[in-house]
Computed example of a mutant assay.
Amino acid sequence: MNRFRALMVDKFNHSFSMEVRELGWNDLPKGDVTLRVAWSGVNYKDGLAGIPEGRVVESYPMVPGIDLAGTVVHSVDSRFKEGDEVIVASAELGVSHFGGFSEMARVSGDWLIPLPTGLTLREAMILGTAGFTAAMSVQRMEENGVAPGNGPVIVTGATGGVGSTAVAMLAQLGYKVVASTGKSTEHDYLRRLGAEEILDREALAVRDDRPLKKARWAGAVDPVGGETLSYLLSTTRQGGSIAVSGLTGGSTFATSVFPFILRGINLLGIDSAHITNAYRRRVWARLAGDLKPEALLKVIGSTEITLEDLPDALSTIRKGGVRGRTLVRL
Rank of each mutant, 00 (worst) to 15 (best):
R207S: 14
V162S: 02
H187V: 07
A179M: 10
M141W: 07
R192L: 10
L212N: 03
G174N: 02
M169I: 14
L204E: 09
A195N: 11
A218Q: 05
A130L: 06
G145L: 01
A205D: 10
Y175P: 05
A203K: 15
A215Y: 01
S164Q: 04
A147G: 00
V177T: 03
P148M: 05
R191D: 08
L173V: 00
K176I: 01
P211N: 12
V138E: 04
N150T: 00
G145Q: 06
A135Y: 08
M136A: 15
A203L: 14
M136W: 11
A166K: 11
G174E: 10
T129F: 03
I154R: 11
M169G: 06
T165V: 15
L170W: 13
D208I: 04
P152Y: 04
N144Y: 12
I154S: 10
R191Q: 14
F132A: 02
G151W: 03
V206K: 14
K183W: 00
K176Q: 15
V146E: 05
A134N: 05
F132D: 01
A166Q: 09
P152M: 10
S180I: 02
P211L: 12
V206P: 03
G128I: 11
G163Q: 06
A218T: 02
G145E: 06
G157P: 10
R216W: 01
V162F: 09
T165H: 10
T165G: 00
I198E: 08
V146N: 07
E186H: 12
V221S: 07
G149K: 12
A171W: 12
